[in-house]
Design a protein around this nucleic acid. Structure first.
Lengths: 230, 230
DNA sequence: GCACTCAAAATCGGATACGATATTGGAAAT
DNA sequence: ATTTCCAATATCGTATCCGATTTTGAGTGC
């Protein structure tokens, strides 16, 4: 620690409540999800520690969490690497699993959701509309975040927290991938989201399931075509 | 210093490369999965470090992994607790998710599995039969381990590694739970496993799916009745 | 007795330094 | 150009220290 300016022992603001491990994790995750780091690049523990001005302890835990989420890969006795981008096959696997879980979750949300759940879902859908405009990096990030929140809310409303947790872990991959291949996605997505929310509000389980399935299949197709035209 | 035998290529000994983090994790996981520790009991980092004769670093990582698997819970700034046993509702959630994934995986295994996969599945089924005898703790552990391996092999043969990974994470919960409520389960299970393996060998997707579904539903019922008669 | 307060002890989150081992990249030698 | 060797570097684990927070254990007043 460097003490450039001292003389402030009786600080009346002693509650940063930061939890360094959290903020290091968030910083690292943001770096990875924004693809600011080349896939395959080395991530050294003390390198990151120096760069973030913290000790190695919180960096290790952050890398550990990112490894569990598949954002980094670990080579025993030789540090971490930025995980490679999803390939075509991995993308298909991802949507395959989502298609097994999310339509069911949406159907259950249509029957099980509380009034508050329905309101949250509706709010999330409407919150995304204004985020669409703008072509910037930042605009896309906000869109993706709202999208994740919406799908997460629907999954939670389905009633099985295990399903919601499973999907949540998958989201990190989705995000990485989608960030890389962002092509006019937002416009179409909004109407599909409205369809899902509409069916859930109407307590229409079969309709919600079908709307979610259609949304995922469309999303997969959009990503796939974007992927192929490289 | 080490011996400088020039001209001598690397030793054939692959080295007792222990990877302390792994063994600490395994030791802790075993403790938890065997329910050797009371749910709700405190797990202090230095306490475990002293008990296992290691430093705190690997203990932290082991606890971190166990937290991700739901075996322990963490209270910020106040250590870890042994996670509470699954309640009736959590048990239902667990089987709910398994029922969404495993029958589908079994159906795909019936069509996609390689010859080697089919042989592995068959081997796993046969490996379980002798493990049934004996009422002891140890006998049950072996049974549960073989059971996990069988289901894992089927899931992998399904072709989507994401699904296999998801189920693998769930297994830790299953194990904890089932270990607690072990009542004559093994005998019935073997015939159900044989039915699944039989349908997969016969390339009968619909049959494999149905056999897996029946197996899971029966398993759930068995656990539930055992749970209720407490 | 019971609740409430407050100081001591235990523990966590984090920083830092150090040693042993493994990886890596480049120079030297064949 | 390929292999060998070696030094620099990084990881993994240990040991120790510190501030902050939680828990515990009285002790006090009612």
């Amino acid at each position: 620690m460097r003490d450039q300016d001292q003389g402030r022992p009786p600080r009346l603001r002693p509650a940063p409540r930061l939890m360094l491990r959290e903020s290091v994790y968030e910083a690292l995750k943001r770096l990875l999800m924004d693809n600011a780091l080349e896939p395959g690049a080395r991530l050294s523990i003390d390198g990151l520690a120096r760069e973030l001005q913290v000790s190695q302890t919180p960096v290790r835990e952050a890398l550990f969490r990112c490894e569990a989420e598949g954002l980094v890969v670990r080579r025993p006795n030789a540090g971490y690497l930025v995980a490679p981008l999803l390939g075509r096959d991995a993308l298909l696997d991802l949507y395959d699993l989502r298609l097994l879980l999310e339509p069911t979750a949406a159907a259950r949300a249509a029957t099980n959701a509380t009034d508050r759940d329905r309101r949250d879902i509706d709010d999330a859908v409407r919150a995304m509309a204004p985020a669409v405009h703008g072509d910037s990096y930042q605009a896309y990030r906000e869109f993706a975040e709202e999208d994740a929140k919406l799908h997460g809310t629907i999954a939670s409303a389905g009633g099985n927290p295990l399903i919601a947790d499973t999907l949540d872990r998958l989201r990190a991959h989705v995000h990485t991938y989608r960030l890389y291949f962002r092509h006019g996605i937002a416009e179409v997505t909004t109407s599909e989201h409205e369809a899902i929310s509409d069916r859930i509000r109407a307590h229409d389980a079969a309709g919600a399931e079908q709307a979610m399935r259609a949304h995922l299949e469309n999303s997969r197709t959009r990503l796939l075509t974007a992927y192929d035209q490289d």
